[in-house]
């Protein structure tokens, strides 16, 4: 005869704590998964649950591009006043698309055009997804370029998409040289104070070599990135180590945040692609040729 029995527990409540502990352990395990397992999980989720959202961003990006093209055509038909009033925004967009189109024609078929998608979630700030993948011939470490130069490299490849890192990623490295081959070094990312103002730095140049201000720095072809892709322009001296080595700040050719369309190298792409960025009459007004500062270059 029990006068006061304990309050009955809700059904299943006893299983909740062990379940929570088990799931917490499972969550911790995800931190230590190998790259292949991570890639399989991420690929499965992206191609299933998140596919509609990624498709939405792809569609919006394409719609923006089409809208830009229509606007550009419409502008040509408008009066000179209308052209002048909208010249600033349209001309820059038109110029970027025209540059990329010209570059794509010179690069074809070794480089495929792709749309850049930024996930926008925590931890993915320096990564992007492109809508070309293994089925198109894209490989890990394929360079990703725009009309201005090197955007980044591919890190993971899936059937129809690939994940890349831009040059602001801490792991980014590229062997580099001056355009005339007079100096070589290694370009890497240098984190800004706030994390928003990433820069490039050219390390490992010989002490006695004084690099001219504004000189174009290209990839040297040593390593995984082909030779001849513009990286940036020599700015001021960043550091002097004793009497044997100097490093220089670079003004990047490409601002990753502004890139929406790129070219991605496919398997079999040539190891020297300097001709892709060679001066031509169409590109000379925007790329600034290979001898001077770029008109579309970044301001730091």
């Amino acid at each position: 005869m029990v006068a006061y029995a304990p309050e009955p527990e809700p059904t299943g409540s006893r299983r909740q704590v062990p379940l929570a502990v088990g799931l917490a352990l499972l969550a911790v395990v995800t931190l230590y998964l190998g790259p292949e397992a991570e890639q399989q999980i991420a690929g499965a989720v992206q191609s299933s649950v998140l596919r509609p959202f990624i498709w939405t961003q792809e569609t919006l990006a394409q719609a923006r591009m089409r809208a830009g093209q229509i606007d550009a055509l419409q502008t040509q038909l408008d009066s000179l006043t209308a052209v002048l009033s909208t010249q600033s925004a349209l001309s820059s967009e038109n110029r970027a698309l025209r540059d990329l189109l010209g570059l794509a024609e010179r690069a074809r078929p070794d480089y495929l055009p792709a749309t850049v998608i930024r996930p926008g979630t925590p931890g993915s700030e320096r990564m992007f997804i492109v809508d070309v993948g293994a089925a198109d011939g894209v490989q890990v470490y394929s360079p990703v370029v725009s009309a201005e130069g090197l955007v980044g490299v591919i890190r993971e490849v899936r059937e129809r998409t690939a994940v890349g890192m831009d040059w602001s990623h801490p792991d980014f490295r590229a062997s580099a040289m001056l355009e005339d081959g007079s100096a070589y070094g290694m370009v890497e990312n240098a984190r800004g104070v706030t994390g928003e103002d990433d820069l490039l730095v050219l390390n490992g140049t010989a002490f006695y070599e004084n690099l001219p201000l504004g000189a174009l720095v290209l990839t040297s072809g040593v390593g995984v990135i082909p030779r001849g892709i513009p990286i940036g322009y020599v700015d001021e001296t960043a550091d002097v180590q004793g009497t044997w080595r100097k490093s220089y700040w670079l003004r990047p050719s490409v601002q990753p945040a502004s890139v929406t369309h790129v070219l991605v190298a496919v398997s079999g792409a040539p190891e020297d692609v300097a001709e892709m960025w060679a001066t031509d009459p169409l590109a000379s007004d925007s790329l600034g040729g290979r001898t001077g500062l770029p008109l579309v270059g970044p301001d730091r």
Partner: peptide, 26 residues
């Protein structure tokens, strides 16, 4: 319950991590 909440957190976190190659699992 605490177990169901943990499960929901695991699933939602995994969805975000699938877009975050840099720090998978965080």
């Amino acid at each position: 319950g605490v177990g169901s909440a943990a499960g929901a957190g695991l699933v939602l976190g995994l969805l975000e991590d699938s877009l975050s190659v840099l720090a998978f699992g965080a």
